[in-house]
Design a protein around this nucleic acid. Structure first.
Length: 594
RNA sequence: GCUGGAGUAGCUCAGCUGGUAGAGCAACGGUUUCGUAAACCGUAGGUCAGGGGUUCGAUUCCCCUCUCCAGCUCCA
């Protein structure tokens, strides 16, 4: 490897992808003249270009063969990329002449001064560059999909047609990437969820309203017990509150103004209106208020619930278990004093770390994000600069103190305050917010919360909203993909399956089954009239961690032959040995066999 | 919600330009009692997502609805 030698001649992959986007646009224009061009950048693992075919054509994947063919011709004809610098006025008149309305709009928004164009063959595009020197440098590319995209990302603007593609330095890298996409699809929680009978949906029940099947329900129950136990140990009090409330409650909280659009429509009841709740905080606030006067001695008051909530997400946003219209959140609200904020945030972060470790997430799968507000956007965010400064600072201090690597994300805060979000990367590399810790002085103000301080005077408590393992739906979706369905033993819907080889050992197997059930194991017994290979294959496909084979030999020796999900044969062992083996997996929450 | 694509047996899929459907696996019945990823034979299974239209005739063509997929937008 002579890296240093290559560095000058090897062009960054982004440049090549961007050039490839130009070539695609060029091909599209040749095939469909009159198509208007919008933008065409490189992305994390490819590129896209947005087109407006002026209603003349609708792109579909069937067009790809033709477009790719044309692209190959352009690449083969070794067209030079030439940079040209012109004035803004000249650029305006050029693209005016070309009749490119989107390009004109972009130029109009640019600063005065020189504007750069890139030209290859007959094709000219407004572009900052850089590009490869020659189209022939584009090596391995493939068009992937076509989809709609709003002009400038706003749903108020017309929708353009976006063609996605990718491009690599070598054919091998491209093939590798396509293979990775295929592999990722195999782990897709929707697919695995079906194969392993974890959850289903029904058109009669409705979109975005998943039904948990027994196997999925088992995983969920284990997760729920796990997190509730942790919270009780950490000084939380668990409550139950109803899944609906009067609209009035959300008018007071301010959610009505901010999120009415994604709340279920209210139902009329006598003189009142009820809505399905989109979050749990206002209910918890009512519990805080139920005592009348709270004392500083009660703080921090940590109130938790596995709260079922309902959000009317747009139909196109729904995805399996990770984006749904009814979900159960691992939610809690900590009512505390100013002085207690710091420690409570740290405690919550420690719970997150503990949970991730127990769930087997390696540090490279998650990142900390500080989600900030926008002082200029008083529509989306509560208008109270001092409050924002204070809360954002409190979160920054924690990061600094714990020396946690993180990044800041302006415009990602809740309407009432900033958040620490913990982002998990899913199989396709997409980030999802899972855990969150939020400092809120707004809702306590709206609901006029109070406690009597040491000084005998009333004060306003701070609320910390925090979620450790997110919604049961989203966490389960993530776990499915993270483990590709091969769950750690403690989470597995079925932890072991007993496979008798012939009828004559059935009684022995039955007793063994009872014995394992008695110790609380989730264990199946397969006494069907099938060959061992068949039973093993089926158990393997179901990703059951342990297969316990019982034949004549095992019966004689009062043992069991243990085969692990990863194919390893652990040989025959005494029943007690197997019990302690699997009990150790469960107790240690071992996540993978090595 | 928007743009594009799709929906055939429980699952995975085949079915050319209109003539009312097929395979493998699963299920069920039988034979087989078997040693680490699929024994053999047979049976049954479909309002071709739902509704409307064109046609002598629609799984196939057109319209509407539902659901799903990719992306955009959004995510308290």
């Amino acid at each position: 490897m002579n890296k240093t030698d290559n560095q000058k001649t090897t062009l960054p992959i982004e440049t090549m992808r961007h050039s490839c986007a130009h070539v695609m646009a060029q091909a599209v224009l040749e095939l469909y003249p009159g198509t208007k061009l919008a933008i065409g950048p490189s992305t994390e693992d490819g590129f896209y270009y947005d087109f407006d075919p002026q209603g003349q054509h609708k792109f579909s994947e069937l067009d790809f063969v033709q477009i790719e063919q044309k692209m190959k011709e352009i690449i083969r004809s070794k067209q030079e990329f030439v940079r040209e610098e012109i004035s803004k006025e000249e650029a305006l008149s050029r693209f005016e002449k070309e009749n490119e309305p989107y390009k004109l709009e972009i130029i109009q928004d640019l600063d005065d001064g020189t504007i750069t164009l890139y030209k290859n063959g007959p094709f000219v595009d407004l572009c900052r560059g850089p590009h490869v020197q020659n189209t022939s440098e584009i090596k391995a590319f493939k068009l992937l999909s076509v989809a709609g995209a709003y002009w400038r990302g706003s749903e108020k603007n017309p929708m353009l047609q976006r063609i996605y593609g990718t491009c690599f330095l070598t054919k091998e890298e491209l093939a590798d990437y396509l293979l990775r996409l295929e592999e990722a699809k195999k782990r897709d929680h929707r697919r695995v969820g079906k194969d392993l009978k974890l959850f289903t949906t029904s058109p009669e029940v409705g979109a975005g309203l998943p039904l948990w099947l027994p196997n999925g329900a088992t995983i969920r129950r284990i997760l729920e017990r796990y997190i509730v136990d942790m919270e009780l140990a950490e000084g939380y009090q668990h409550v139950y509150t109803p899944v609906l409330a009067k609209t009035e409650l959300y008018k007071i909280s301010g959610h009505w103004d901010h999120y009415r659009g994604s709340m279920y429509p209210p139902m009329a009841l006598d003189d009142d209106e009820l809505v399905l709740r989109p979050m749990n905080c206002p209910h918890h606030i009512q519990i805080y208020k139920s005592e009348g006067v709270r004392s500083y001695r009660e703080l921090p008051l940590r109130m938790a619930e596995l709260g079922q909530m309902f959000r009317l997400e747009k139909s196109g946003e729904l995805t399996g278990l990770s984006r749904v219209r009814s979900m159960c959140l691992n939610d809690a609200h900590i009512f505390c004093t100013e002085e207690q904020i710091h420690e409570e945030i740290i405690k919550a972060l420690q719970m997150v770390e503990k949970a991730y470790k127990d769930l087997g997430f390696t540090p490279d799968t998650y990142t900390y994000r500080l989600s900030l507000g926008d002082r200029n956007d008083t529509v989306k965010y509560v208008d109270n600069p001092a409050m924002w400064d204070k809360a954002e600072n409190e979160l920054r201090v924690v990061f600094k103190e714990l020396n946690l690597p993180h990044y800041e994300a302006p415009g990602e805060a809740a309407f009432y305050g900033p958040k620490i979000d913990i982002q998990l990367k899913n199989v396709l590399g997409k980030e999802e917010t899972v855990s969150t810790i939020q400092v809120d002085r707004h809702l306590p103000e709206r609901f006029q919360l109070e406690y009597i301080g040491e000084d005998g005077k009333p004060h306003q408590p701070i609320m910390i909203h925090r979620g450790i393992i997110s919604t049961m739906e989203r966490m389960t979706a993530f776990l499915i993909e993270y483990y590709a369905g091969a769950f750690p033993v403690w989470l597995s819907p079925v932890q072991a399956i007993i496979l008798p080889i012939k009828d004559s050992v059935n009684d022995f197997a039955l007793n063994f089954h009872l014995e394992l059930q008695k110790m609380g194991l989730r264990v199946n017994l397969d006494i069907r009239n099938e060959k061992l290979g068949y039973k093993i294959r089926e158990a393997q496909v179901q990703k059951i961690p342990y297969m316990l084979v019982i034949g004549e030999k095992e019966l004689q020796e009062n043992k069991v032959a243990v085969r692990r999900r990863d194919g390893k044969d652990l040989g025959a062992m005494s029943i007690d040995d197997f019990k302690s083996l699997i009990q150790d997996d469960i107790n240690s929450k071992r996540s993978r066999f090595e």
